[in-house]
């Protein structure tokens, strides 16, 4: 399901127009961004939690050239599905 169909389905369910729904999604993404940039965890009951995780630097080997590369440390946004969602998907 792509972004367009998701917004359409949501606007039908909420009885709101599409711009309102897309504004909501934008708001949600900025809130998640702001909180995760502060290394906070955003938890959504029944769905999962969005969490910023620090990854240490590491050394990888380029499969084609065989050169060793030092990958720098970074912060990634990870999603941890809740038990309920896991059960649902299984």
């Amino acid at each position: 399901m792509d972004n367009k169909t998701l917004i359409e389905a949501l606007s039908k369910r909420l009885n709101r127009n599409k711009t309102e729904v897309s504004n909501m999604i934008d708001g949600l993404s900025t809130v998640i961004k702001d909180h995760c940039a502060d290394m906070d965890t955003v938890a959504i009951p029944g769905f999962g939690s969005f969490e910023a995780k620090k990854r240490l630097e590491r050394i990888t080997v380029h499969p084609q050239t065989g050169k060793r590369l030092l990958v720098p440390p970074k912060i990634t946004l990870s999603f941890k599905p809740s038990a309920l969602l896991k059960q649902k998907i299984k």
Partner: peptide, 25 residues
């Protein structure tokens, strides 16, 4: 909105479909 949004995503995922959301992932 939040409840509907995430339940819709969960249901869509349960049906085996991927969900792509702009600006989120």
């Amino acid at each position: 909105f939040l409840k509907e949004f995430f339940s819709l995503i969960a249901n869509t995922l349960a049906s085996g479909e991927n969900v792509k959301i702009k600006k989120l992932g």
